[in-house]
Nucleic acid binder design. Sequence first.
RNA 1: CGCGGGGUAGAGCAGUUGGCAGCUCGGCGGGCCCAUAACCCGCAGGUCGUGGGUUCGAGUCCCACCCCCGCAA
Length: 315
Amino acid sequence: MDKIKTIFVGTPEFSTHYLNAIINDGRFDVVAVITQSDKPSGRKHEIIQSPVKKIALEKDFKIFQPERLKADINIASELKTLKADLMIVVAYGQIIPKEILEVARYGAINVHPSLLPKYRGASPVQSAILNGEEKTGVTIMLMDEKMDHGPILSQVERKLSEEETNDILHEKLADLSTDLLISSAIKFINGEIKPIEQDHDQATFCRIINKEDAKVDWNKSAQEIKRKIYAFHPWPGTWTMLDGKRIKIFPPTKILKQKNIKKSPGQIIINNNELIVACGEDFLKLDRLQLEGKKEMNADDFLRGYEDLNGKILA
RNA sequence: CGCGGGGUAGAGCAGUUGGCAGCUCGGCGGGCCCAUAACCCGCAGGUCGUGGGUUCGAGUCCCACCCCCGCAA
């Protein structure tokens, strides 16, 4: 059997797990890679290449980096000349127009890290943690014009614990589903899978995360705040303000229930060398912090250098 | 040339107008105690990021460079 001529579309680290799996499997021939354009990034505004691009360069794949895929009319015809069998899309970061989705003979397959039709959209993993879901998973599906809307080829589930962070969960979901992507793609091409239409009435959506989402509202319950800290780790990183300075909060944190103490939300309590903050409901013990300009550190290190914290208010 | 904070003992920090380098924690030794991460006594541990300059004298002032970090993108 000939190798499956594949166009891979993706951008961040998460995508690279799948690209590597496809490369290592041996039954696929990557004829092109589409990834986001290089952008000035970091402290000195250096030009940064996407993780997917780095692999593509290493393997000497043909690379496309349109500024806006929608606006680039020529790219569809150029892709067609590759006579690809399949397009595989993992976290590209742009809407892909219909003409592009149709350049490969068998169409486009998407990997989406949620149990579709739940959590369509830009932040499925973060949202599942934020909402305290008991389980999430990964869906392999065919793409159509609507976002995360196409018929499902396969799914895999994973239980969630209260201690799951966004970065680790992404990795675990990838580990869990790279094989599934490959087997599903091959079965689909061989006509061994019948795609199943999603139950669109059950669909839920999650929007892209912005920086304002990452600020702590201490009026919320300790549980809600804890989930945010885990869901937004390491990016964008949950933060609050202390004495006019930004301070980031990292996992782990622990919820403390103490009914007889009354403090205003955001108030710091130093007890037994532990850093505890009053929330709208219950209390949160913070273990790891980072003051702007400083490195991330343990709470007891932080307390050592920052005297008279007791009673101060985080906002 | 995007904006900003920082580099001082193993860790976290302080160091006033330039004048003997400190604090808390940790480490080591000893003491107290039924006992302890508690308490008491003692000890060790620093080329103050690097190089140059000013000065009788620089952690501190001037110049250059290296490294870490927050914002923004």
